[in-house]
Design a protein around this nucleic acid. Sequence first.
DNA 1: TCAGACCCTCACAG
DNA 2: ACTGTGAGGGTCT
Length: 277
Amino acid sequence: MAEKLLPVRNYDLAATLTSGQAFRWRLVDGAWQGVIGRQFVRLKQVQDGILVNAPLPSSAEEYLQTNVDLAAVIATFPEDVPMQAAVKACWGLRLLRQDPWECLASFILSSTKQIVQIQQIVRAVCECYGETIPGSPMNTFPSAEKLAALTEENLRACKMGFRAPYLLETARIVANRKLDLESLRRMKTIEARAALTELPGVGEKIANCVLLFAYGFQDAFPVDVWVQKALKQLYFPKRKPSKERLIKFIQTHFGPNAGYAQQYLFHYMRTRYDQAD
DNA sequence: TCAGACCCTCACAG
DNA sequence: ACTGTGAGGGTCT
């Protein structure tokens, strides 16, 4: 087990790992435990960056996106009051770069679920069908091939309810190479989004989550109930804009890093903003 | 465009 | 302690 310091400033590790982009991180004895690919990883925020404890610590660099210049990203945000409040309240919040399959499967499981519940389901899926990692308390996230070979009943045993057939069908499509998740990297946002929404259980919102959290399409902007609430309350306190109107607003207002801005608004609403409606 | 259904769990009333 | 109720990072028909 090796240890390495990834030097980085302006990185709030706890906020990033608990902000609803990834669902497997747990704080144990002052360190964040999780799995990246096939490695069990422990992360610690220290003075000069993030301390990574893993067999191959440098592989966490890509996942954590420690090379991103956060100040430069935030400089592209609009200078309106709500956005600046979110930035101030959530300083150091980052976007991860996750494995596409794990991200896709996890967000199929996310629909109308609280984040705690998503974490529970994902955990059950990994404990039941993931592969053990020698010398580690956690399993890998099960591959599409592994899930494709299961039954709907097998999946329902993990308490995912009506999401089970969606996940199963999507796993089969991915395992059969009817959709190559790697090929999306070379596509434009709009094409990649179209490919993802072909999948059962994947609509605009979940597609945008995968585009943003796994592929790094910075212009993907997931609109869920929280962000919708944020946009309405913060930007249209009096009017009652349609969802169409909101989408238009998003596309023109938030700039090239709209996805990053979205994560700030989401986290801000969920953790800081007084939600008296 | 617009409900309603969809599984299940947990928080919170009473 | 018990039962009832509502809602939760949506999608499909």
